[in-house]
Structure formats: C-alpha cells, structure tokens
Amino acid sequence: MEENYDLTLIIHRYDPDTKRSWKQTYHLNAGRILRFVDLFRKINEEEDPGLAWNSSCEHGQCGSCSVKINGKPLLACELLVENAVEYFGTTTFEIEPLNVAPVIRDLVTDIEKAYKRVDKVKPYIIQSAPLSEKGEAYSITPDEMAPYINATRCINCFCCASACISSHRGFLGPNAMLASIVRLMDPREMEKIERLRVLYSDQGVCRCHSSHACSFVCPKEIDVAHFIALAKEGRFGSKSQKK
C-alpha cells in the first residue's frame, strides 16, 4: 500500500463566456484516502482557483458531485484515490461533466434541466387513497413496502441516466421511471392510470433495452433495471414479488 500517489488529472473544461472547450492536465501528489472532491479542492487551493465543480454533502447522500471518470459515471465524493488507482489500473484520470444536461462551466452540468424528466413523472402522491380515519397515518406493513423500498433510496445523481445506452432524446431515463414506479407500488397512491400512461408512452419503458448499465453504475446499488423490468411486465402489485 502506497502512502502517496502522483496523479495526472485530465479535466474537461468549458468557458461559457468564450464558449471554448478544452482539456486541461493537472499533476498532483495526493494521499491515498483523499477523495476526488478533495483533489478538486486541492487544485483550487494550489494551482487553479478557477476550476468549477459541484458537491454538497460530500458523503454520498445528495447526488450533487456526479462526474464521469475514465468513462464511468460516479460520485466524486465517494471515490478514494487508492481505490481509483486499483479500479482503473492507472494513475491518469480523465474527468468529464455528466452528459445528461448542458454544461454550465467545467464540471458543472445544469442538473436542473435533467430534473425536468423527474418532474414529468410527478414524484409525489397525485391522488391519495382514502384514510380509515382522518388525522391518522396509513397502515402499511413492511411486507407491503418491501417491493419498492429500495427504489426510494434514489438520490437523483443521474449516474444511471448518464450510463444508459438508450439516449433517445425524449426518453425519461432510468431514475425518472424509478420515481414513478415507487408511486405505482405505493398503496397510498390512487392515480395509477395517469402514471401508466406516461410510463408506457414512447418516452417510457419501451425505450429501455434492458442493458442493465443503470444498475451497474448506481452508487446506491439500486437494481434499477429490475424495477424497469417489473414495469415492462406490469407487475406493480405490492405482494408476491420479493421476499
């Protein structure tokens, strides 16, 4: 195990004022357990305060720091230097912004635009089921929740959308479909028809080629493709799917 690594970061840059794009190479020496967000900060402090990048929570909970590193979409706050060296088998890393929306500057993508697809599936309860008693919580058992609870862990980092091979322009993409599938399985939601109409439209599941790239890259290890497969078969029932 080495203590320090000499790294080469090739970062894709974009200047919105001049509309110029270029690749910039940074050489830095970094400790083995620094994360890529720490490397970006180090570049800002030591070399280039102008490099723009995104992050917020910096512990894998918010999905703000997604970038592509050597082609793989991932969370920059979760990737340690020594793990990256081992995983990619190199100390040279090419870092690009996520390709799910226009780039604003350097590694910062306009995620708000990508979110439009999530908004389209209405990520809330459209029409609530009747309550047994007003002022009470619904009664839902863990068994009833089991089929969809994993899908509620999605943080909308858009890594899956970035990896999805079906990059058809109108396609909702894996995470937006996931948000809809959650409410199709949630017994509190009554409005299933409208949801199905969107999911089975030409923007929905039919665009998916079941490549499983989404499941492969999801930092939350959600089996996104599994949920989409269920949706293709129309299996939204809350029982009998998984035990």
């Binding site: 995104n54 929570c57 512990h59 909970q61 918010c62 703000s64 995620i111």
Partner: peptide, 10 residues
C-alpha cells in the same frame, strides 16, 4: 443545483 440536494437530505 436542486432543492433535493439541500442539506436536510443527509
């Protein structure tokens, strides 16, 4: 970049 990224989420 989006309300969902606010710190309450953690």
């Amino acid at each position: 970049p989006h309300p969902q990224k606010s710190h309450t989420s953690t």
